[in-house]
């Protein structure tokens, strides 16, 4: 995993942007006022090697989910490329894209809204198998049971409706539905943030098992660094649509270089009742994404902000082996911070 450039990536994102046009109402059109633009994802590039679990972390509104959905074209990006095994899927015509969807699947955040309330588990999984002719009709029943077994659900779950299951069980059904397509790449869009803490570990372990068993590659989206720490091989951190830091997991947790990443690590709760944080990790709210600050978008909250940060946006540059940071002052960002308990990597 250390030399990523040696392996051809299974998925490569180049300069991906998604802009939403806001306020394009009748009055705006009439007065010809330029509409407000919201940059949900702004010029993000990354490569994911086969077998990797790439953890993508950011606050809500940072564009991480939009990025994940762009990879499947559930949201059409405004600019950029998404290369899956060298093919730009954004250029594929509709018919070919439907074929490509077999290879790319998604697990959703909310297990309560991601399952059709009027379909039994058998109908849900059977529909996938039948529409894509993934197995002959007489094998469908057996394959459905196989999938349920794979995600650790009892065989008698087949005739139940989603309302009969707990959140964790529903999430397993969602995973089984994605696996029915026999995908090579899965976007896991905060798959554990809506389930009970006690169930989170079970679902995470299931995903790790499945990854090993089926040789999956995953983009794992989370708003919480501690979740990503367990599961990913590499981690990327997003802030207001920009990728601000990207590194192999150990490196990111032991030597974070971006002040925002450091702030996130400091903000994470410590399992130590006597621990008192000696300084406020991140101050203030992120500014409005409709009017992002000039220069570095983080400068309004950054302890190291200088005039340079207010004027020029820092490029994402490689400062070490596979360690990318977008910060003018990454060499000033000391870690561990003085007088604070170091984060245990």
């Amino acid at each position: 995993m250390n030399d990523l450039r040696a392996v051809p990536p299974i998925l490569e994102v180049k300069g991906l942007s998604k802009r939403y046009v806001m306020n394009a109402g009748f009055w705006q059109q009439l007065t010809r006022r330029p509409p407000d633009l919201l940059h949900a994802v702004d010029d993000v590039s990354l490569r994911i090697a086969p077998g990797e679990i790439f953890g993508l972390v950011g606050e809500s509104g940072s564009g991480k989910s939009t990025l994940g959905r762009c990879l499947l074209r559930l949201v059409e990006p405004t600019a950029g490329q998404v290369l899956f095994r060298g093919v730009d899927i954004l250029q594929l015509p509709r018919a070919q894209m439907q074929g490509m969807r077999r290879k790319l699947q998604i697990i959703f955040q909310d297990p309560y809204s991601s399952l059709n309330p009027r379909m039994t588990v058998r109908q849900m999984l059977g529909e996938v198998l039948a529409v894509h002719r993934l197995c002959p009709p007489h094998r469908v029943e057996a394959r459905v049971r196989e999938l349920l077994h794979l995600v650790g659900l009892p065989a008698d779950a087949v005739d139940r409706f989603p309302r009969h299951f707990s959140g964790g069980q529903r999430q397993r059904i969602g995973i089984a539905r994605a696996l029915a397509m026999e995908p090579e790449f899965i976007v896991a869009d905060e798959p554990v943030s809506a389930v009970d803490v006690s169930i989170q570990a079970q679902v995470l372990n299931l995903l790790i098992d499945l990854k090993a068993q089926l040789g999956l590659t995953m983009l794992f989206i989370a708003h919480d660094l501690s979740v990503v720490q367990h599961i990913s091989t590499r981690v990327g951190v997003m802030y207001m649509g920009k990728l601000v830091e990207m590194a192999p997991r150990r490196l990111l947790f032991s030597q974070p270089r971006h002040p925002y990443t450091q702030g996130l690590l400091l903000a994470a709760p410590q399992p130590d009742p006597f621990h008192h944080s000696t300084r406020v990790a991140l101050e203030g709210e992120p500014p409005s994404p409709l009017h992002p600050p000039a220069g570095c978008r983080f400068h309004t909250r950054c302890p190291l902000a200088s005039d340079r940060c207010r004027q020029a946006p820092p490029p994402l540059q490689e400062i070490g082996e596979g360690h990318w940071v977008a910060c003018h002052h990454h060499d000033l960002a000391v870690w561990p911070p003085p007088a604070a308990t170091p984060w245990a990597a």
């Binding site: 559930l74 074929g99 969807r101 998604i106 809204s113 059709n116 539905r177």
Partner: peptide
């Protein structure tokens, strides 16, 4: 999200409309 899921699963618009949206 189940309608998004249906799209991600490559179902046709007609199927999404009649099997996943209308009954609900």
């Amino acid at each position: 999200e189940y309608v998004q899921a249906a799209r991600a699963l490559g179902f046709s618009n007609l199927r999404i409309m009649f099997r996943h949206i209308l009954p609900n």
